[in-house]
Computed example of a mutant assay.
Amino acid sequence: MGMQQMIKYMEQSDHIYAMLKQCPYEILREWKLTTHAAGTVLFSQGDVQDSFYILVDGIADISVVGENGKKYVQSTYAAGNMIGELEIVDRLPFMSNVEAVTNVVLMGLKRDYFLKWLQLDRNFNEYFIRSILKLQYDILKKEGDNNLYPLHQRVCSYLLSCVPEGKKNTDGTIIIQIDKQQLSRQFAVTPRSINRILSKLKEHHIISLHKHEISIQNMDQLRLEEQMSRS
């Protein structure tokens, strides 16, 4: 991969810049760039990979499939997220599936160079440790929320979390690019369960539903719904 391409991705993402800003040149020149079409399963649960990856463009879903066959989306990754960081050191099998939601671009680094990078670059070493700890924190928090709070609260909370990435219209409504099927996978529940909650929010004029979008019409009421369903 050319250095100009590397600089381009560093300029586009603060996370990528934070990781690579002190990467030694001998490591920088070993990165490989690959592109993948939307819908591609990039990595499968149980696979063993010999490279570490950074998502530099596009969006990917991180999911697991339970014994009952249900797909549970653990997270959605965007530019700057690391892939395979938990498995690479000891060549462990991937715990999750990674699927391209949009067209994606990955930067990959072979395991030997990755381990050398950790030794040579104190900046990345610290970034890596902080990222692993944050990931563990987020996973435990999500598991705790799933056990403590009803589905209604979790759906409201998730919609609120999507607001910063939404499109704000002149009338004050906010458009979120997500549909019922995605929410069903996000919470590993049936579409009927999701539809029941969304229909109730629609009846109260909190949201409106479209084919692949949800429009938030009353942000204050959505926050109130989220708070009330905690009790």
Rank of each mutant, 00 (worst) to 15 (best):
A78R: 12
A78K: 12
A79C: 12
G80K: 07
N81G: 09
N81C: 15
M82Y: 01
I83N: 01
I83A: 00
I83C: 05
G84D: 04
G84Q: 06
E85Q: 15
E85G: 02
E85Y: 12
L86E: 07
L86S: 06
L86R: 08
V89S: 12
D90P: 04
D90M: 11
R91I: 08
M95K: 15
M95H: 13
S96Q: 09
S96A: 13
N97W: 03
V98R: 06
V98W: 02
V98L: 09
V98E: 04
V98Y: 05
V98N: 07
E99K: 11
A100P: 10
A100R: 02
V101Y: 08
N103E: 13
L106S: 02
L106V: 11
M107V: 10
M107H: 08
L109C: 10
K110Q: 12
R111A: 09
D112H: 05
D112N: 13
D112C: 10
D112A: 13
D112E: 15
Y113T: 02
F114Y: 13
F114N: 04
K116E: 07
K116G: 09
K116L: 11
K116T: 14
W117V: 05
L118D: 10
L118W: 04
L118Y: 07
L120N: 01
D121V: 06
R122Y: 13
R122P: 08
R122H: 13
N123Y: 01
F124V: 04
F124Q: 01
N125R: 11
E126S: 04
E126V: 01
Y127F: 12
Y127H: 09
Y127G: 03
F128I: 00
I129E: 12
I129T: 14
I129W: 08
R130T: 01
I132K: 02
L133R: 11
